[in-house]
Simulated scan of single mutants.
Amino acid sequence: MDPTRSLPFDRPEPLQPPPAYAELRAREPVATATTSAGNPAWLVTSYDGVTAVLSDPRFRVVAPGETTTGGATLLQDGEPHQRLRRLVGKAFTTRRIEALRPCVQRLADEQMDALTSSEKPADLVSDFAAPLSIAVIADLLGVEITERGRFRQLADAASRADFLAEGGAETAEHAWTSFAGYVGELIAAKRERLGDDLLSALIEAGDSGDGRLDDYELTTLALTILASGYLTATNAIAVGVTQLITEGRLATLGSSGASEVDAVMEEIVRLQIGRIGEAFPRWAHENIELAGTQIRAGDMVLVRLEAANRDPARFPEPDRFDPHRMTAQQPAVRHMAFGRGPHHCLGAALARLEIGIALRTLAQRLPNLELHGDIHDIQWIHSHADTGPVAVHITW
């Protein structure tokens, strides 16, 4: 492994990928690298290479010799993973998500009322994106998160803990155990008042083939949905609005139709997935040839969705913000912001709904929104999964 390729790579521009991705993609799309913990890995930066790794069952999220990642139970492989997705899928349906649209819009309007009545400059993260995301995911699950400060503290601590970092396993385990204890309290309260919501459906989920979720599975799934639903949406909204402001596109979005808003949202997540989060590591379970490179069983493989989504072989002028590119191109060329293959994001429909409503509502209510300060002054939270700005100061 090349010791000079130590992750993470430098990112001179906050909303642009590290220049090293383009350089590697052009000459060595499957390259050696070293993780932040000092572990050797293969780094995959081409669209075709990333697609292959995420779709090939010989690349798994569990390392050879292990039965589980020790984290979220959806991070398994094969039949155990498929079983959980079948059970969750029964509750996480398109109908259920679409039925949330009026509620998400109401919550966005309420949060906008609070934002516009606050002092300026405000913080896009703590004054809009985070409380909206917490409210939406709480409504989906059917739980009351009255202690939003406590919820954010636990969720943020868990997301920032890095199992792969030097000495990080103990800290990460403590953070996730604390968060799991809080989620267990929510589940216990929900058992007493089952309703027409996702958590009730998960509690009652099961069939003759799959069986019901045990307490550990239920707690871990609910924890995963809560954490990812809050973190991913918060970061996507904050980063998306920042991009629209810098592109000078926020004001025009307010008068756009639904299809145009959807197109803008898709282009934002295509370009900004690397700022929001990346796919979990994979491990090769057999000797595999990938793009002419021999990968041995047991090797760690890191795909970069951000690099794949800017592959010029698939996306003409990939760094240009073009909301119409996905309709102009062949349907088979889709961005991979929500992953690909058996571990593609279960919450993609909810994320699309929430991000789209948040962007359009902000554009309609505050078309003259602008950053308060320089974009290079924004501080970023870095974690093993989700990444986002600590704060985005705004004025209008």
Results as ranks from 00 to 15, higher is better:
residue 62 V to S: 06
residue 269 V to K: 09
residue 323 P to L: 05
residue 378 I to F: 08
residue 184 G to Q: 07
residue 67 T to D: 11
residue 161 A to L: 09
residue 293 T to G: 09
residue 380 W to P: 12
residue 326 M to R: 03
residue 64 P to A: 01
residue 2 D to H: 06
residue 354 E to M: 08
residue 103 C to V: 13
residue 126 S to V: 03
residue 394 I to A: 06
residue 122 A to N: 00
residue 71 G to F: 14
residue 104 V to R: 05
residue 333 V to Y: 11
residue 330 Q to N: 14
residue 197 D to I: 03
residue 196 D to S: 12
residue 310 R to E: 13
residue 311 D to S: 11
residue 274 G to S: 07
residue 299 D to A: 08
residue 237 I to M: 04
residue 171 T to V: 10
residue 381 I to Q: 00
residue 298 G to C: 01
residue 28 E to A: 05
residue 162 D to R: 10
residue 112 M to H: 03
residue 158 A to P: 09
residue 38 G to M: 15
residue 164 L to Q: 15
residue 218 L to V: 10
residue 22 A to Q: 15
residue 184 G to F: 07
residue 260 E to Y: 05
residue 339 G to S: 03
residue 129 A to G: 06
residue 241 V to Y: 13
residue 326 M to A: 02
residue 359 L to E: 14
residue 131 P to V: 04
residue 138 A to W: 05
residue 251 A to V: 13
residue 152 R to P: 06
residue 66 E to A: 10
residue 354 E to D: 03
residue 34 T to G: 04
residue 254 G to S: 00
residue 42 W to M: 03
residue 348 A to V: 06
residue 165 A to W: 12
residue 234 T to H: 04
residue 351 A to K: 08
residue 362 L to P: 02
residue 310 R to T: 14
residue 194 L to S: 13
residue 337 A to T: 11
residue 245 I to D: 00
residue 82 Q to R: 12
residue 151 F to M: 10
residue 350 L to K: 11
residue 69 T to G: 05
residue 90 K to P: 01
residue 130 A to E: 03
residue 178 S to Y: 09
residue 367 P to A: 09
residue 299 D to H: 11
residue 84 L to G: 02
residue 70 G to A: 09
residue 262 D to W: 11
residue 231 L to W: 10
residue 289 E to A: 09
residue 135 A to R: 01
residue 120 K to I: 08
residue 374 D to S: 14
residue 250 L to V: 00
residue 309 N to A: 02
residue 381 I to L: 11
residue 169 A to R: 05
residue 79 E to P: 07
residue 214 D to F: 04
residue 33 A to H: 09
residue 355 I to A: 12
residue 94 T to N: 10
residue 320 R to T: 11
residue 226 L to V: 03
residue 61 V to P: 01
residue 80 P to A: 08
residue 34 T to H: 13
residue 376 H to K: 15
residue 377 D to I: 12
residue 24 L to I: 13
residue 269 V to F: 04
residue 278 E to P: 06
residue 292 G to S: 11
residue 351 A to I: 07
residue 347 G to S: 07
residue 247 E to N: 10
residue 9 F to A: 03
residue 161 A to V: 14
residue 276 I to M: 13
residue 39 N to E: 15
residue 96 R to N: 03
residue 286 E to G: 00
residue 252 T to I: 02
residue 187 I to V: 15
residue 63 A to P: 01
residue 214 D to K: 06
residue 340 R to E: 04
residue 351 A to D: 07
residue 378 I to T: 01
residue 206 G to D: 05
residue 247 E to H: 13
residue 130 A to K: 03
residue 129 A to E: 04
residue 341 G to A: 06
residue 322 D to P: 01
residue 297 A to M: 10
residue 338 F to V: 10
residue 109 D to W: 07
residue 279 A to C: 06
residue 23 E to V: 00
residue 310 R to V: 13
residue 213 L to Q: 05
residue 286 E to D: 11
residue 47 Y to Q: 09
